[in-house]
């Protein structure tokens, strides 16, 4: 009994461990190893180059641009989405007729396939015939080059991301808002605190952990940005919307510069690991409370 009792958890973990070993642990190791070689495929005919691929990344204008774009996108999109989510959560915090319906409908963009989202917005952004420019022209404003002005393209993608994922930030923040006990406010009201002070001194601090989690999860997701860019701009115009994921994709599946692509992938995984540490720390802190 005791022996089988000791074995049982491992037996239960086996399927998951097998899947992770084959589909993540082994690929991770292989990526790490390949990042040290110059190769267009696997290890056959590969030449060991040490850290040359990383040096190359460091020197590459395109990689640096991809990193800059990814960071800018992540920060801006996250801030906007959390702000929008907070606004929505505050708006829907008090019950009113039709609130359930509104909440369900608001979630719709979030569950759509990114490809469907991209299809819609690519059509909307069309310079000559797009819905957005048609609207602008109808009120006498000249059309905006949403996707082909290099200074604007990334912001257009931020707009799409905001539309699609603000509902997600809303969900998290709303959950947090529901957990704030109402008597806290009662006390504050008795003390004569106005709505702004109640928001600033009570709601915001109590919500802070939820805002943080929302921001963290959104930034993790933004950091991976691939689908939208792939189908909306292909990284252009110029390098204006190139992201690190796109960079890895192009090096790996178009140029077959597997070594360089793996090096960039390693950089991404390290960043993901750091984010995981931050996330885990926040979870542990939450558990300790």
């Amino acid at each position: 009994m005791t022996a089988s009792r000791r074995l049982l958890p491992w037996l239960l973990l086996t399927p998951a461990l097998l899947i992770f070993a084959g589909l993540t642990l082994y690929p991770l190791g292989r990526t790490l190893a390949l990042s040290l070689f110059a190769t267009d495929y696997g290890f056959e005919n590969a030449k060991f180059v040490g850290l040359e691929n990383f040096q190359e990344l460091w020197d590459s204008r395109f990689f640096r641009q991809a990193v800059t774009n990814t960071v800018v996108f992540t920060v801006v999109a996250t801030v906007l989405e959390v702000a929008a989510g907070l606004g929505l959560a505050l708006l829907l915090n008090r019950a009113f007729p039709g609130r359930t319906l509104v909440m369900t409908l608001l979630l719709a963009p979030f569950v759509l396939s990114t490809m469907v989202v991209t299809a819609i917005w690519r059509a909307w952004f069309h310079f000559d015939l797009g819905f957005l420019n048609n609207l602008l022209r109808a009120v006498g404003i000249p059309g905006v080059p949403w996707l082909f002005d290099p200074n604007l393209a990334l912001w257009s993608i931020v707009l799409v991301d905001l539309w699609q994922t603000a509902p997600f930030a809303f969900l998290i923040i709303f959950a947090g808002l529901r957990l704030i006990p109402q008597d806290v406010y009662e006390a504050a009201r008795v003390d004569g605190a106005g709505p702004w002070r109640r928001f600033r001194d009570m709601t915001l601090p109590l919500l802070a952990p939820y805002l943080f989690v929302a921001a963290l999860l959104r930034s993790v997701d933004s950091f991976k940005l691939f689908d939208k860019v792939y189908a909306m701009t292909g990284g252009g115009p110029g390098q204006a919307t190139e992201t690190v994921s796109m960079f890895v994709y192009r090096q790996g599946f178009r140029f077959f510069d597997i070594g360089l692509a793996s090096a960039a992938a390693v950089v991404m995984i390290v960043v993901a690991g750091l984010l995981a540490v931050v996330y885990a720390a926040s979870l542990l802190k939450g558990a300790g409370r």
């Binding site: 395109f62 290099p150 252009g236 115009p237 110029g238 390098q239 192009r250 178009r254 140029f255």
Partner: peptide
């Protein structure tokens, strides 16, 4: 060539948009 073309295309466009 496929790769050469992509590289050249990237740089030509950077020049075209004035960067």
């Amino acid at each position: 060539w496929a790769r050469v073309e992509t590289i050249l295309g990237d740089y030509l466009q950077l020049a075209l948009i004035g960067q």
